[in-house]
Write a protein that binds this DNA or RNA. Sequence first.
DNA 1: GTGCGCGTAGTACCGGGGTACGACGTCACG
DNA 2: CGTGACGTCGTACCCCGGTACTACGCGCAC
Lengths: 221, 221
Amino acid sequence: MTTVLIADDQPMQRFGFRMLLESQDDMNVVGEAGNGVEALSLVQRHQPDVALMDIRMPLLDGIEATRRIIKAGARTRVLIVTTFDLDQYAYDGLRAGASGFLIKDALPEELLAGIRAVAGGDAVVAPSLTRRLLDAYVQHLPTVPGGPATLDARIASLTEREREILTVIGQGWSNTEIAERLHLAESTVKTHVTRILAKTGSRDRVQAVILAYDTHLVTPA
Amino acid sequence: MTTVLIADDQPMQRFGFRMLLESQDDMNVVGEAGNGVEALSLVQRHQPDVALMDIRMPLLDGIEATRRIIKAGARTRVLIVTTFDLDQYAYDGLRAGASGFLIKDALPEELLAGIRAVAGGDAVVAPSLTRRLLDAYVQHLPTVPGGPATLDARIASLTEREREILTVIGQGWSNTEIAERLHLAESTVKTHVTRILAKTGSRDRVQAVILAYDTHLVTPA
DNA sequence: GTGCGCGTAGTACCGGGGTACGACGTCACG
DNA sequence: CGTGACGTCGTACCCCGGTACTACGCGCAC
């Protein structure tokens, strides 16, 4: 049984959610909040599995309420459900620790599926947003050893490990940082760096980074 | 009507997909491919709305096939549907330009919803992956409190001359080279560099170069 | 005129980056 | 079984990059 708290300042909206949820035999609405403060205290008291959170609410908006819920270490997962498909809202909400972000024009089944996913520890985002999120994410892809094959021969001559090192150099890491975070001796890092520079024909790490960008080994944010 | 191409090396799997899709009156299977090469040519010929793409295929795997489809500028959106929930696959697939990534243990309705979303220009990822995707994504945000604005602000605070210097640093020039080619004393160059680093919050010129790329002050060759 | 931003320049100093060696264990391959 | 590629680590050394501080001339705004 999934317990759900509904936080929305519009009574009719809450009613709609409640009707939908109570039509499901695996869901139970344990409370309704009309503002952020109320939402906070009800989460505290009932510890629901999921909190359906509107953004625009009196006293305390949904983003800030989410932030405090997460900060308090509550077991409750927050699923933000709002009217407006604004990226900024979604970013803020997700950064605040929300497990999901859906738009109110979603189909009932989508909403239910979203709640179940969030309750199960997964995350959901509105399809319309997924695309943009993905684009942004792909740009930020961290070290993916063995990533896509690069075209440039200079990069191709590098070993797997060397490409990995070059990638983090491209993140702006110093030798010391690389050593720490990759659990290596600094001397080892230096060895790798020297070999990378030799193979790529770079004079220093700056030129190597430029090459990494040019060959799309690393991508601009 | 959404036209779909099925690319999978297992005939039974293709059969299952076909049955599911043909039970929908808004979907039409326009072809089946048993390997990557075949998938490529069928996409070329039929220009389907969506290509359901398996990863493990003979001759050409699904990732590489996806990459070539995208590169060729085809209108077809690729939805990768694979057996294994490996992050690496997903990363590679998404980087290759896929519009979505689903696991074969998804419910039929989920798969259908995924196809419709992708056909409509949205993106989808498997719920189990969404969580990790989001975590990784959000993790990259905190340094950018006000969104992209701050990036530009760091650059914007530079004077004309400083931007000029940063640009050539982004070409890989050393301080000595900058001094020579811009007819400056090296000490002057150093002064500029120090100010640039301070203003941009970079620790060394490598990080400054990265910023320059990220803000498109300099562009990859 | 007084102040200020900017570009220029110098000196002194230090630390990290890069080089040049040498060394060792592992693993794949002929 | 050798042999070579690879990843790892160490030491010693040099020099460029970056910092701190000071200084001067120019143009412009108040």
